[in-house]
Design a protein around this nucleic acid. Structure first.
Length: 420
DNA sequence: TGTCCACAGGAAATACGGGGGT
DNA sequence: ACCCCCGTATTTCCTGTGGACA
């Protein structure tokens, strides 16, 4: 009977999955699925293992003044992505606020998350939203207006105000306007005792800053070192305990993941992501998490990253990528120059009915692709024969094929006329 | 040594579309 | 409904450049 076969198939498959289940609670493999209190609990556990000890010490001594009614200066925090700047700070500030309240010190702290790049306008707008000073606008309201609203909102507050600006250098264009406002203007116009905390990926971000702001800005600096392998092991072990059946993790797996992660970025989030991917792959294969599997998961993970990156990229960028791939194919893998790439791009655009952009703009697209290391390019002078970028695709063939297939042939023709 | 190619990449100008004010 | 302002994306215009070639 057909139905019984199907039933049996399903039943045995499910039995098999249950028996080989590795993941107890997958939410603990992805921070975004955890609710705030759980996040903080995990965090506390991590800190209890003496991870980030030095940094927490420094923070404590910097902010201790608040409990004595003093006004600490601003703080700049430097550390690569995934070194726990954000989490450590939010953990610390919560605790600090609790202590302050116990002593009847009025305190308020807000975190402005600029983890995705945004212009000055949006940053200010977000800040205003955060403080409840205005609603979210897309456009159409002046910067001045936003600033005034923020000031008005804060006019009556006299306690401490700690603003944690995460990833400051993501404010592109007019960063000075934004910082001038925070550093010079705001403190003068409100009564609150303002303490700014800046976090950034780049060590030297205050260097290319409007000198007037810079001289005004008294800073204490704090550096978050990348996690080393031992730290990462702690972090991973906690996750394994919470999320996986411990007997399903082969010996040495944690150490291996920690080693891989600490070697090439020291980024805890990515280490956890690798653990998660390994678990998924293992579960699907119905085996335990083995060392080989981790290896496989790692390659799969960064393949996924490239694909996700490109899929969420603007159409023009996808078109540029497609053009480069096609041009490279045409040239049998020898590096191609800007001109060839641009020809291929225009051809591609005609093919799918997309408005082609100028050569100048195309150059910027190439630069962007290079930034994401989807292509590798360097400018090369061939003397009499001019200057070009020498463009190569430096990715596994299989991935290139996938990308090429994934770029959708946008048939959605633009209203604008195609160029001749 | 000078010329000149084929672009790079900065700056200013322009186009565009959303949004507020009235 | 109209007008004006704003940020963003793209174009236009432009100057710069390393080295092969004459």
């Amino acid at each position: 009977m057909e139905t019984t076969t199907v039933r049996n198939k399903i039943i045995s498959r499910i039995r098999h999955m249950v028996k080989s289940a590795i993941i107890k609670d997958r939410r603990f493999l992805d921070d975004e699925q955890l609710i705030r209190s759980e996040q903080l609990a995990v965090l506390e556990e991590i800190f209890n293992a003496n991870v980030r000890d030095a940094e927490i010490q420094e923070l404590s001594s910097h902010f201790a003044a608040i409990l004595q009614g003093d006004h600490p200066c601003h703080l700049a925090i430097w550390g690569k992505t995934g070194t726990g700047k954000t989490l450590t700070l939010s953990f610390f500030l919560n605790l600090l606020a609790e202590m302050a309240r116990a002593k009847n010190v009025p305190i308020r702290h807000e975190q402005l998350d600029l983890s995705t790049p945004r212009p000055c306008f949006r940053a200010l707008n977000d800040l205003a939203c955060l403080l409840g000073a205005s609603k979210r606008y897309k456009k159409g309201i002046s910067l001045e207006e936003l600033m005034l609203r923020i000031e008005a909102k804060l006019a009556g507050y006299r306690g401490y105000l700690i603003l944690f600006i995460d990833e400051v250098d993501n404010v592109r264009r007019d960063r000075d306007t934004f910082l001038t406002f925070l550093v010079r203007r705001l403190p003068q116009r409100i009564n609150a005792k303002l303490v700014l905390v800046f976090a950034s990926n780049r060590l030297n971000w205050p260097d290319h800053l409007d000198p007037r702001v810079k001289s005004f800005l008294k800073l204490n600096e704090l550096i978050f070192k990348p996690y080393d392998a031992v730290d990462l092991q702690h972090i991973l072990r906690i996750r394994v305990e919470k999320a996986l059946r411990t007997d399903s993790v082969e010996r040495g797996v944690i150490e291996k993941i920690a080693a891989m992660a600490s070697q090439d970025h020291g980024d805890a989030r990515r280490a956890v992501a690798l653990l998660a991917k390994s678990a998924f792959v293992a579960e699907k294969a119905g085996s335990r998490i083995t060392l080989d599997l981790v290896e496989r998961a790692a390659t799969e993970l960064d393949r996924d990253r490239y694909l996700a990156l490109l899929r969420s990229a603007p159409t023009q960028l996808q078109a540029a990528m497609a053009a480069v791939i096609e041009a490279t194919l045409r040239s049998n893998g020898t590096p191609i120059g800007t001109g060839e790439a641009y020809d291929a791009y225009k051809r591609f655009c005609r093919g799918v009915g997309l408005r082609g952009m100028t050569g100048r703009a195309f150059g910027d697209l190439l630069a962007e692709l290079d930034m994401y290391s989807l292509i590798r390019s360097r400018v090369l002078s061939r003397g009499r024969y001019g200057r070009t970028r020498e463009i190569t695709i430096d990715l596994p063939q299989e991935l290139v094929d996938k990308i090429h297939g994934a770029i959708p042939p946008h048939s959605r023709a633009r209203k604008h006329q195609l160029d001749s």
